[in-house]
Computed example of a mutant assay.
Amino acid sequence: MKNLISAIKYIIVTLIIMFFPEDLFAQGCVAIRQFSGIGNAVGQGNILEKGELNISANYRYFKSFRHFRGTHEEPDRLTNNTEVINWTHLIDLNISYAFTERIFGILSVPYAYNERSSLYEHGRTERHTTYSQGLTDLIIGGGYWLFTGEKSPKGNMAIGGGLKLPTGNYGATSRFYNVGPNGESEIRPVDQSIQLGDGGLGLIINGQGVWNLGKTTFLYYDGFYMLNPRNTNGVQTFRRRESEAIMSVPDQYALRAGLFKPVGSAHGLALSLGGRIEGVPVRDILGKSDGFRRPGYIVSVEPGASYMIKDFTIGLNVPIALLRNRTRSLTDIADSTPDNRVHGDAAFADYLVNLSLAWRIAKKDSDLFNSF
């Protein structure tokens, strides 16, 4: 019985290492924050033994370029070469530590590089590119597994929480062309979608679980909501509407679930297939919701694969967008009239690439590590 429990726990650890480290990082302008560990990093502690560590490095990439107003795509933006294109690269380091068998802590340190190509931000006559790079918003948090391995041999679930620290530069600037009084270039804050932070102290509430549905099939799920009480951050947008002159500091949310199945051996190849929804709400739960934001959500199918060699696991998953919805913001609603229904748009990606490498440091190796 103990061998069975140990085997199940080891498979669960492998699953969580591979499919919970990566960010719930939405694919386009709607998900404006680029910090690590939205939800997942808080729950990344794994089912480790007391004193064990898990270290993971994750790389993410997407290109957003398809414009949506509501769920309606605007293909003429591509035809007329007026689309906005974002390229985002994010690398983060996540370190989790098991204080006990059931209590864990997590620290996530991310770094981002972004490019944004557009016409409308450069006098609407020439296409130019703006840039941002640097440390983004850190996450520190922890969680609690509800069951011990002996009491729940078929799986486990955890609840957790954390703080999103405003360490990223939320007023990052770049050069904009054809925008000065006489057509000169100016240094201005970059668009909200490629800012490195939002300036708010966020509270993350997280839940996750893994359950054995058969001999080698597992159900996984993970969800979070981030409350961002700060109203606006004082950074100018240079948008035409006065109601959108300053950047908002919005809440965020995400949920993902699916099936995970080792192929041949629990210590080798494994495949997964699931779904996810992530987005920015129109209104925050706490505090005001003034200023400019792009609310909306993305629903994706999420295939993935991982391979485990001893305590090292490499994984790849590629969420593919099925539904993209740029919902109406409060400023859209307020600025509408009976003759003019305002509804802003947003650019979304077709897919997101997540590549991760995880190292589980066992108790004996952790003791050696801590001795230096």
Score class of each variant (00 low, 15 high):
240 R>D: 15
324 R>N: 13
54 N>Y: 08
59 Y>R: 10
214 G>W: 06
256 R>K: 14
61 Y>E: 01
322 L>W: 01
67 H>I: 13
94 N>T: 13
42 V>L: 07
51 G>S: 02
251 D>N: 09
99 F>W: 14
83 E>D: 11
158 A>F: 00
139 I>H: 08
20 F>T: 07
143 G>I: 06
335 D>N: 12
372 F>C: 01
152 S>I: 09
90 L>G: 06
192 Q>F: 07
74 E>D: 15
235 V>S: 04
184 E>W: 03
220 Y>E: 08
100 T>D: 08
227 L>H: 01
221 Y>R: 02
61 Y>R: 04
153 P>N: 09
171 G>K: 13
280 V>M: 12
221 Y>H: 09
136 T>D: 09
294 R>T: 14
107 L>R: 03
230 R>A: 12
12 I>S: 12
346 A>E: 04
122 H>F: 11
150 E>S: 13
160 G>Q: 04
224 F>L: 02
132 S>F: 04
321 A>F: 00
31 A>V: 11
172 A>W: 03
218 F>N: 05
36 S>E: 10
38 I>C: 00
349 A>N: 04
185 S>P: 01
169 N>L: 08
348 F>D: 00
129 T>V: 15
240 R>W: 09
193 S>F: 01
362 A>C: 07
363 K>G: 00
183 G>E: 04
356 S>M: 12
235 V>K: 05
68 F>S: 06
354 N>A: 04
78 L>G: 11
63 K>E: 08
252 Q>S: 12
231 N>V: 02
232 T>Y: 02
145 W>P: 02
64 S>W: 00
318 V>Y: 03
252 Q>I: 06
